[in-house]
Amino acid sequence: MQDPYQLLNVDRKASQEDIKRAYRKLAKELHPDINPGNEAVEQKFKEISQAYSILGDAEKRQRFDKGEIDASGQETPFKGGFYRNHAGTKRGAKYNPFDFGEDISADDIFADLFGARNRRVRRPGANVSYTVPITFLEAAKGAKKRIKLADGKTLDVRIPPGTEDRQTLRLKGQGMPGVGGGPAGDALVEAHIQPHPFFERKGNNVHVELPVTLQEAVLGATVTVPTVHGSVSMKIPAGSNSGSTLRLKGKGIKARDGDEIGDQYVKLKVMLPERPDQELRDFIENWSRSHDYDPRRKAGLT
């Protein structure tokens, strides 16, 4: 897998804010919603999203720089065949291939193996941590993602609707094998949600900024608006201002712990033509002679 710094086109000394800006710029250009049916662009979007799941998290970035995880976010195998396991070790402790936990030492293991003790040690296996990058829409609506386990096997993980960023999903019995017949540990999968080019989540509500034309704002119109559930029609009242916010009830994200569904808030952004023609300029000039108004004074800015 390609180096995440190269994928995002950032220097290894780039700040977290620089990395975020670089990802957002690429995401807007490569997002599948903007390039429907283009498989090459979709694959590139997946690659930059994976890269951002590593570099966008300061802790994961530090671990990648140290070689503790690879470009896919998975643990790097230790030379002795053991895996670094941050979920199962003491907080802040460094990885030790002969650290079998608080209640058992390496001597206990070797003594049991060579028959120096009659007692049999039975201990659960350690938990193993993974990260999985998911898109904004996958987190909102639910999805299945495939991860590669420490033993090389693959596993399909169900991402529940309403999953939040950095939420940890527990896969029972998918961690390291137990000792002395003990049960296997669990796999702890942390979901990393990639920013969306125009959707933003706040609680269970979704916010989006919608560009509208001058005539749509002045005269009113019915326009098509994207939501996490698909596009819907929305009526813009005549005389709407830039910054006006309209609500689409029930078009947000379903709560993880209930049936409640949030709303979508659409903030209007009135846009002039890229190149206003002379007719529009003449009209505004004539209109302004008899319709003087000062919005800054009303807002207390003058």
Rank of each mutant, 00 (worst) to 15 (best):
D11G: 14
R12A: 13
Q16F: 09
D18L: 08
I19K: 03
A22P: 01
R24E: 14
L30K: 12
H31P: 08
P32Q: 11
P32D: 13
D33L: 15
G37P: 02
G37A: 05
K46D: 14
E47G: 05
I48T: 06
Q50T: 14
I54Y: 02
G56V: 00
E59N: 12
R61F: 12
Q62C: 06
F64L: 08
A71S: 15
E75L: 11
F78R: 14
Y83R: 07
A93C: 07
D99S: 11
D107R: 10
L113G: 05
G115Y: 07
R119S: 12
G125A: 07
V128L: 11
Y130G: 01
Y130W: 09
T131R: 08
P133L: 12
K141P: 01
R146E: 12
R146D: 02
R146V: 04
K148Y: 03
A150I: 06
D151G: 01
V157P: 03
R158A: 14
R158Q: 14
G162P: 09
R170S: 06
P177A: 10
G185C: 02
V189I: 14
E200L: 04
R201C: 00
V208G: 00
E209A: 13
L210D: 02
V212Y: 07
L214S: 04
V218H: 08
L219R: 14
T222G: 06
T227H: 02
V232C: 03
T245C: 00
T245A: 04
L248Q: 03
L248V: 02
K254T: 15
K254W: 08
G258A: 15
I261S: 13
Y265V: 03
K267G: 00
K269T: 10
M271F: 06
D277S: 15
E279M: 08
E279A: 15
L280Q: 13
D282V: 09
W287G: 06
R289G: 11
D294S: 08
R297Q: 15
R297V: 15
L301K: 10
